[in-house]
Design a protein around this nucleic acid. Structure first.
Length: 824
DNA sequence: GACCTGCTGCGGTGTG
């Protein structure tokens, strides 16, 4: 390897820190001249930040050397490096670490952040002149682009780093980043762009998306230092008394406490917010001596309450933090000794990400302790360990031309600088997501922005731009004001704020939860026991309380399905088990349950589709183990139920989980493979789905978010947000107007598309159906519920009856089952 | 004797 003087200086810096450079860091340095868009992927905590800065430093050294030898002019002033991060909470720490690496090399650039947290005066200054390095979010970048006085501030920009690109890639925020990059590249054609990412299955696509459509020289640089991951599971004393279903996992509380005892800092990850509340209370009640050293963190807790928790982790004053994905990324700069996962892993990448929160330093292994909430989760842990060992991981799929964001971005661009339509079209098409955007679609968007489209022509409010001298201009200053308040793609939920009378906000809960609580009743939230004082002006006023049996809130959140990769890996583990290859402790432990499944039915395997048929009182229950994840199953079960009722005069009750779905039918269905093959046919899938799912209701809800991103709905001034109801009313009105007068409206089309793709995972469903037809259908009649059927049955009766009798019925059924097993 | 669910993320005005 040849090292110029520049490389020597960089080597020297590593030496001064007592570090060895990693190969991939030097690879990035070597690729810099050749490559225009690159992607660095390495496990978390492996020095990606330094890797991204080395070429920037190298370039600056070259310029300085040239200037010193008199061959070049003065160095650029203003912004040279733009660093995009998805999380504003990371911006401050990123500023410091960039600053320190640069200073170490004798480069005294000014490094600043610009996010929503930045002070108003600094933001005002930054509109006109930027520091040498700016750390920002995709949203704040869009805002910068939207200010007329910012024209020119990117004129000295040399490189962009997109941090945590894997996190942005699969979302509209990623698409927004693509559009931002397309704009910056138009201004600076020679721009170098580097993405930093965790490992993904589709790295090639990830770099392609980052590069956009211009032919660009790209490279993928891999961190070769494999991170060591230790996955350990906790087991109950006996599988006999371990639940077959459920999600809380508190059965293993004592074991978890022992694990917490042995480390000074632990992160306890859960899968839901309400689970976080339950575990926080359980731990605090069991270890009162840890008072003040146990904290809770999730997305519905107010940011002001969360910040001290993050700080407590940083300074080591907290021993245990119970959290959701809210701390998946946010603790990059924090030393955590061990990580605990309560409940199923859901995905391979997800477990890796969480495990990576511990041992967050080169050379140190990551450890994660997995706590099953029910028996079959042990198979998931075995599967995820195997998948990691064989290098299998999920892809993240980028979005394709979302029209709501297109509409938003065109306005953003024209606010910053009035431009001819052709030029804007070309720029937008250079972003990967819009590479296939047709001129017709683009013209539709322009017409919509200028005149409100076909159906809103009469309303001036929807006319945002106008053409003058061949350029698109904002129609008024008002347009800019309202538009900037709506920039971004995250649409917030409909939750009710929870406040003390003093005015301090604790966070927010679901309206459906708080409406069940009467004043005087006690519930837990944000780790506190609270009493509802009154519900007034869409706000829940509470005071601290003590009380037994407090209610635990639940939220209407996302329902992360088991990933396809992990579902396949689970089936493979069952196959291993069937072959007698019990090469993990998890499989050995769960053996009694799997044996019972195999004895009373069969084990579902990769090449079979198991359908169980059980008579429960007067109904026939059919359990289909399709292993498609709960979202795809929700679509599938609706479809199957609909097709059944088309053929038979029957009432069908359904339930789903990640492994399969269940139909309870009050008539006899044929127990032969041909019938099920037909019922599960993939013909007319989309049309049938839209028909049977009451799709317009789902689309209507999805449309609300689309209308907000497209700037059709103003959701209120900061600090004085409109209520969910108000937003709902105006979005519904628009939906109805479009449906009536302009059914081909591209935003309606997008709403349907998003329902199919995001809420029902149509692509996965389609693949699933194809896979089903290549599998052998095996129908087994069972006398009793099997271990795999039990959770689906319990899930079904949850929707049927009150919680009191739910408990009774589950207990009764469990007792019945356990009597059988002792008798057997 | 088993059990009640369901993630995250950002940003903004203007006038007295």
């Amino acid at each position: 390897m040849h090292f110029s003087g520049v490389h020597e200086r960089i080597r020297h810096w590593f030496h001064s820190k007592g570090w060895q450079p990693f190969d991939f860091q030097l690879d990035v340095l070597r690729e810099y001249d050749r490559v225009e868009t690159g992607l660095v992927h390495a496990p978390t905590g492996m020095g990606k930040t330094v890797a991204a800065l080395l070429p920037v430093i190298h370039h600056e050294f070259q310029l300085r050397d040239a200037a010193a030898s008199g061959s070049d002019g003065t160095p650029d002033s203003g912004l040279k490096l733009l660093w995009i991060t998805p999380l504003r909470a990371l911006a401050g720490d990123t500023v410091h670490s960039i600053q320190s690496v640069l200073t170490g090399h004798g480069i005294d650039w000014k490094v600043e952040a610009r996010t929503g947290d930045t002070s108003a005066s600094r933001k005002a200054r930054q509109r006109k002149a930027l520091p040498d390095v700016l750390v920002t979010t995709p949203e704040s970048l869009s805002l910068l682009i939207s200010y007329p006085e910012s024209t020119g501030i990117f004129n000295g920009l040399r490189s962009v780093v997109v941090d945590e690109w894997h996190e942005l890639l699969g979302s509209k925020r990623g698409t927004q980043t693509e559009l931002g990059l397309a704009h910056l590249r138009r201004r600076r054609p020679a721009l170098k762009v580097w993405g930093l990412s965790a490992t993904l299955a589709n790295l090639d696509l990830a770099v392609e998306v980052l590069a956009g459509t211009h032919p660009r020289k790209t490279a993928i640089v891999s961190g070769r230092h494999e991170k060591e991951i230790h996955i350990e599971s906790l087991f109950p004393d006996s599988m006999d008394c371990f639940p077959w279903a459920g999600h809380l996992g508190l059965a293993l509380l004592d074991r978890v406490l022992e694990v917490l005892d042995r480390a000074s800092t632990s992160l306890v990850f859960t899968n839901t917010r309400s689970q976080t509340e339950s575990w926080f209370h359980a731990i605090r009640d069991a270890r009162p001596q840890w008072d003040g050293a146990v904290a809770i963190h999730h997305g519905s807790i107010d940011r002001k309450e969360r910040e001290p928790v993050e700080q407590g982790l940083k300074d080591g004053s907290l021993k245990v933090v119970v959290c959701t994905s809210s701390l998946d990324l946010g603790v990059d700069f924090i030393p955590v000794e061990q990580v605990i996962q309560i409940g199923g892993p859901k995905g391979i990448a997800r477990l890796l990400q969480r495990a990576g929160r511990s041992g967050h330093q080169p050379g140190r292994p990551s450890r994660i302790v997995c706590v099953p909430a029910h028996s079959l989760e042990l198979v998931e842990y075995a599967a995820v360990r195997r998948a990691i060992a064989t290098g299998r991981i999920e892809p993240r799929n980028p979005l394709e031309k979302p029209f709501d964001l297109l509409v938003q971005h065109v306005v953003t661009l024209c606010l910053g600088e009035p431009r001819p339509a052709d030029e804007i079209f070309a720029e937008i098409r250079s972003a990967w997501a819009y590479r296939d955007l047709t001129r017709t679609e683009f013209d539709w968007a322009l017409d919509f922005i200028q005149f409100g489209g076909k159906s809103l022509r009469a309303y001036k409010d929807y006319s945002r731009l106008m053409e003058e001298d061949g350029k698109l201009h904002p129609r008024s200053n008002e347009v800019g004001k309202f538009h900037r308040m709506g920039i971004g793609t995250i649409t917030s939920d409909t939750a009710v704020p929870v406040k003390f009378k003093s005015g301090k906000t604790l966070g927010s809960v679901e309206e459906s939860f708080i409406s069940r609580i009467r004043p005087g009743q006690v519930f837990i939230f944000s780790g506190r026991t609270l009493q509802l004082e009154k519900f007034h002006a869409n706000t829940a006023y509470v005071r601290a309380a003590s009380g037994k049996k407090p209610g635990v809130p639940s939220w209407d959140g996302g329902r992360t399905p088991l990933s396809s990769q992990l579902a396949d890996a689970v089936l493979e583990q069952l196959e291993c088990f069937a072959r007698g290859e019990l090469d993990s402790e998890e499989l050995r432990q769960v053996a009694p349950v799997l044996n019972r499944q195999a004895d009373s039915s069969i084990l579902p395997l990769p090449d079979t589709l198991l359908i169980e048929n059980t008579r429960i009182r007067r109904s026939q229950s059919w359990f289909v183990y399709a292993f498609g994840g709960r979202l795809a199953h929700e679509g599938l079960v609706a479809l199957v139920a609909w097709r059944i009722t088309e053929q038979f005069k029957a009432t069908v009750v359904t339930s789903v989980n990640d492994y399969g779905f269940h139909l309870s039918v009050n008539c006899d269905l044929p127990a032969d493979a041909a019938f099920w093959n037909e019922i599960l046919g993939s013909e007319d899938l989309e049309a049938d789905l839209l028909e049977c799912l009451n799709a317009s209701e789902m689309a209507k809800r999805q449309f609300r978010e689309i209308a907000r991103v497209a700037g059709l709905i103003f959701s209120g001034y900061p600090g004085a947000r409109k209520s969910a109801r108000q937003v709902q009313v105006s979005s519904q009105l628009l939906y109805e107007v479009f449906s009536r007068y302009e059914p081909e409206h591209l935003l309606l089309d997008q709403a349907r598309r998003e329902v199919l793709q995001q809420q029902l995972e149509i692509n996965r469903l389609r693949q699933l159906l194809e896979k089903i037809h290549s599998r052998k259908i095996q129908i087994v009649s069972t006398g009793k519920l099997t271990p795999m059927a039990f959770p689906l049955w319990a899930e079904m009766i949850r929707g049927e009856i009150s919680s009191e009798s739910w408990t009774d019925r589950v207990r009764k059924m469990a007792e019945e089952l356990s009597r059988d097993s002792t008798a057997a």
